[in-house]
Design a protein around this nucleic acid. Sequence first.
DNA 1: CGACTAGAGCGTCAATCTTG
DNA 2: CAAGATTGACGCTCTAGTCG
Length: 91
Amino acid sequence: MPTYPLRNPTSSLPQGVAGPSAHSSQKPIEDALQKRELRLMKNREAARECRRKKKEYVRCLENRVAVLENQNQTLIEELRALKDICRHKVE
DNA sequence: CGACTAGAGCGTCAATCTTG
DNA sequence: CAAGATTGACGCTCTAGTCG
């Protein structure tokens, strides 16, 4: 469960704090709204960064796959050549 | 053309992990 | 333990490609 305030900031105000209909100060509400905006902004940027890192990670993996496939192909050819040499020696 | 679709990117929520 | 950071999931928008 998140520890930060959810969608409706007024619903997460501390007990005894005036809601919108009360005629006392609006300050706590503004504070809560501001806090929410800040949280949304930070999470927006965090999500962007998270996606950037994930794409980078996938790119790295794809690159590694390409390298390993090349190595594998090289080894297959090397093995074929060695087998060929052995066959000629036996003959 | 317009209708439809697949894929990419985005913002948000919520759960979980990390840190002071 | 509270606050902040991270990330999977969802729904939305936009764009490029395809088809009738």
